[in-house]
Simulated scan of single mutants.
Amino acid sequence: MQDWQLTRLQLSTPEASFSANGHWAVQARASALPSDPRAPRPADDPRRTLLHFKLDIRDAGALLARFDMPGVLARGQGHLDGSLGWTGSPFSPHYPSMQGQLKLDVGAGQFLKADPGVAKLLGVLSLQSLPRRLTLDFRDVFSSGFAFDHVRGDVVVQRGIASTNNLQMKGVNAGVLMEGSADLDQETQDLRVLVVPEIDAGTAALAATVISPAIGIGAFIAQLVLKQPLIKAATREFHIGGSWDNPQVRRVGQADRGAGQDTGAAVPSTAPAAVNQEDKP
Score class of each variant (00 low, 15 high):
residue 164 T to P: 07
residue 169 M to E: 05
residue 169 M to S: 07
residue 61 G to N: 02
residue 104 L to H: 03
residue 56 D to V: 11
residue 61 G to V: 06
residue 136 L to S: 03
residue 127 L to H: 03
residue 139 R to Y: 14
residue 164 T to M: 10
residue 131 P to F: 04
residue 162 A to E: 00
residue 71 G to K: 06
residue 90 P to N: 03
residue 134 L to F: 11
residue 169 M to L: 15
residue 110 Q to K: 14
residue 120 K to E: 13
residue 83 S to E: 00
residue 84 L to E: 15
residue 172 V to L: 15
residue 128 Q to Y: 12
residue 172 V to Y: 15
residue 109 G to Y: 06
residue 171 G to M: 01
residue 147 A to Q: 09
residue 80 L to S: 00
residue 153 G to Y: 04
residue 136 L to K: 08
residue 81 D to Y: 00
residue 146 F to N: 03
residue 148 F to Y: 01
residue 92 S to T: 07
residue 93 P to H: 10
residue 119 A to K: 02
residue 165 N to L: 07
residue 168 Q to P: 15
residue 136 L to Q: 04
residue 135 T to V: 09
residue 154 D to C: 04
residue 129 S to Q: 09
residue 138 F to Q: 11
residue 60 A to W: 03
residue 161 I to L: 14
residue 106 V to E: 01
residue 155 V to N: 05
residue 113 K to W: 15
residue 90 P to I: 13
residue 104 L to V: 08
residue 155 V to S: 06
residue 160 G to D: 00
residue 117 G to W: 10
residue 132 R to W: 02
residue 103 K to V: 14
residue 102 L to Q: 02
residue 106 V to I: 10
residue 96 P to H: 05
residue 77 Q to Y: 08
residue 126 S to Y: 05
residue 143 S to G: 05
residue 54 K to N: 06
residue 131 P to G: 15
residue 96 P to W: 00
residue 81 D to G: 12
residue 141 V to D: 01
residue 62 A to I: 03
residue 148 F to A: 02
residue 54 K to Y: 10
residue 64 L to A: 12
residue 143 S to T: 04
residue 69 M to P: 04
residue 115 D to F: 11
residue 128 Q to H: 14
residue 95 Y to F: 13
residue 130 L to M: 11
residue 93 P to E: 00
residue 167 L to Q: 12
residue 62 A to F: 05
residue 71 G to Y: 02
residue 165 N to I: 01
residue 160 G to C: 07
residue 55 L to V: 06
